[in-house]
Amino acid sequence: MVADEGAALILWRIAAGFVGGYALTSGFVALLGSVLPLAGMARGEAVSLAAMLALFVYVPACLLMFATRRPLRDGALLSAGAAATIALARAI
C-alpha cells in the first residue's frame, strides 16, 4: 500500500502514473484518431473525439498507479500498453 512504502516505490508509482499514463494517452489518441477513419469517420472528427476521451484514459491510469497493491506489475503493464498503442498507431 502506497502509504507504507519507501521513496523508490513511490517514485515508480508517480513516474508510471504520470509519464506512463501520458504515453498511453498519446498512443490512445493517435490510435483512435487513426482507426476510426478506417470505419468512415472524418479524420478531424476522429481526433476531436479521441481528444475528448483522452482524460478518461489518463486520469484512471494515474489513479490505478496509486491504488494498486502491485505497482511493479501494473506499472509494467501500463508502460507495455503505452508502447503497444503507440506502435499500433504508427503502423496504421
Binding site: V29, S34, R43, A46, V47, A51
Partner: peptide, 26 residues
Amino acid sequence: LIFAFLYLPWGMAEPFGGKLKDATAA
C-alpha cells in the same frame, strides 16, 4: 481540452501523418 494540441501534439498529429497544421485545419 482547449490545449489538446499543445499537450498531446504527437497523438493529435499522428493520424494526419504527423502534420500538426493539417490537424488544426481539419
